[in-house]
């Protein structure tokens, strides 16, 4: 299912072109084809194990593809592109002797060899990113001593430090309570406007993202469907994607996706996506 055309007047930043990924003899993604425009906010929605992380890793060049290609900013996808990455889980040792500001600076110069001192440009950029994510007060703390939520925010600052054109976030909303979910989304929406960066964010719940998302990429059964929320989050589109009946309900202005129906042999009525 293609996602043409890009929103009016936007230039293409990412093209995931007919990508297929095989892991251990099993095809986990096939015919995945979509584009992301400069500055767009795209949600990558799917249940656990649907292949969201694999797709993000393929875009980063960390996961070899068995077919198709990924083009980021006009260059075939490989590591070290203009992409910032916030993985789902990084556990820092408690004793790691690295301050928050140092870790964010590694986002800019972590690939550089030698011991040359950090230039003023790097330090100013670090301060700027920390300020825009409201982390200024933590700059001198050790990363291992922060809470999980703070560490995730620091990882976002780290990913943004090198002024990427695309920010990839793997399940940043998992394990957050609802107020923190909305807060995180608001911060991301603000940052993507101030930094002019496109955002591709994976989540298993679509609801909280609907107000800020430009478009959605829905992953199920190793395939994707994409478009605006209105185009994709419809019973017939999602039923075709999942291969069985799916209902889309609107409850108090919130989107609820219900997979299967009562009495359906083999299908379990189950709320999978809020």
């Amino acid at each position: 299912m293609g996602c043409e055309p890009l929103p009016e007047g936007r230039r293409e930043l990412v093209h995931v072109h007919d990508v297929e990924v095989t892991l251990g003899g099993r095809t986990v993604l096939r015919d995945v084809d979509f584009r992301i425009a400069e500055g767009e906010f795209v949600g990558l929605i799917g249940t656990n194990g649907s292949g969201k992380t694999t797709l993000l890793r393929a875009i980063l060049g960390l996961q070899p593809t068995s077919g198709g290609e990924v083009v980021v900013a006009g260059r075939e996808g490989r590591r070290g592109g203009p992409v910032g990455y916030v993985p789902q889980r990084v556990t820092f040792d408690h004793d790691v002797p690295v301050r928050v500001a140092d870790f964010v600076a590694l986002g800019v110069d972590g690939t550089r060899l030698g011991l040359a001192r950090r230039g003023r440009g790097v330090r100013e950029r670090v301060d700027e990113v920390l300020a825009s994510l409201e982390l200024g007060a933590l700059a001198g703390r050790r990363i291992g001593a922060l809470s999980g939520g703070e560490q995730q925010r620091v990882l976002m600052a780290h990913a943004l430090a090198s002024r990427p054109r695309l920010l990839l976030l793997d399940e940043p909303l998992a394990n957050l309570d609802l107020p923190r979910v909305h807060e995180t989304i608001a911060v991301l929406d603000r940052v993507r406007r101030s930094e002019g960066v496109a955002v591709l964010l994976s989540a298993h719940e679509i609801g909280p993202l609907v107000p800020v998302m430009d478009r959605v990429v829905y992953v199920a059964q190793g395939r994707v469907a994409c478009g605006t929320t209105g185009e994709v989050v419809r019973p017939e589109v999602l039923s075709a994607l999942y291969g069985h009946h799916v209902d889309v309900l609107n409850v108090h202005g919130r989107v609820v996706v219900v997979e299967g129906e009562p009495g359906d042999p083999g299908a379990h009525p189950e709320v999978v996506v809020r």
Partner: peptide, 15 residues
């Protein structure tokens, strides 16, 4: 140091 902190993130940056 970078890859010691997170090999995944460092690899994505091109280390």
């Amino acid at each position: 140091l970078y890859s010691s902190l997170s090999e995944e993130v460092a690899a994505a940056r091109g280390v």
